[in-house]
Design a protein around this nucleic acid. Structure first.
Lengths: 111, 111
DNA sequence: CGATTAGTTCCATAATTCTGAAACTATGAA
DNA sequence: TTCATAGTTTCAGAATTATGGAACTAATCG
């Protein structure tokens, strides 16, 4: 992943409505939610929601599938995983122990 | 972490210059880099760099420490960790196996 | 076909963010 | 003190993003 792709991914999530959509889709998992339902649930006009969904699509954070008249949106796990990998790349100078919390039980930022 | 804090954190990283600064600081670790050095290395005027550093500070992604005339900036691990936790919260409907890659060896988005 | 529902695109306005010159504050050296 | 270096703040113009009404395309039904 290049820096510019990471910026696109981060920008797509760096907006209240979009981050909320993303989290709704994370919770919903494979089932997904269609555009109109998101628009209704969040009380956001359809054109605005459509704009936000486009941003998230463009950033590779969600995917879409048409089902009859509706279009179902789902979170794209590879997207968020790639972003998280990029953010912690080269962390800890290759020595994860520097990164682990004192207890050593939880996972540090390098996993 | 609240949604609004996550938006602030994401916004702070969703800018090429700032994401590059963040990565430089990730690589440098505890040593850190001072403002002027960042300004020089990235060829960005001091006021602009100062603005970006302030954004990252405000988002809790970096910390600062004055050393004589210089101010050293360092990555703030808790910041990025909290953000990543927030992004994968409620993922996989509590069933991490749904999230793990086929091989089962790498870590999925739920850790 | 025409009517209805779902969703997107267009586009002008509003709001926010970014940039860097000029002026400022802070620290250390002579 | 005065000077020089490091960094920040101010502020105004430039650039980018967000918003939603109106008009459009897509699919289904009768």
């Amino acid at each position: 992943m290049e820096l510019i792709d990471a910026v696109t991914a981060l920008s797509s999530l760096a907006q209240p409505a979009r981050l909320q959509v993303f989290r709704l889709l994370v919770k919903t998992g494979v089932e997904g939610i269609c555009a109109g339902e998101l628009s209704r649930q969040m009380d956001i006009p359809k054109p605005t929601m459509s704009f936000h969904l486009k941003e998230l699509m463009n950033a590779g954070m969600i995917s879409s599938e048409r089902k009859g008249r509706s279009i179902t949106y789902r979170v794209r796990k590879e997207g968020i995983q790639q972003l998280m990998t990029f953010l912690t790349e080269d962390c800890c100078q290759g020595r994860p122990e520097l990164c682990l919390p004192p207890s050593g039980e939880e996972k540090g930022c390098c996993g």
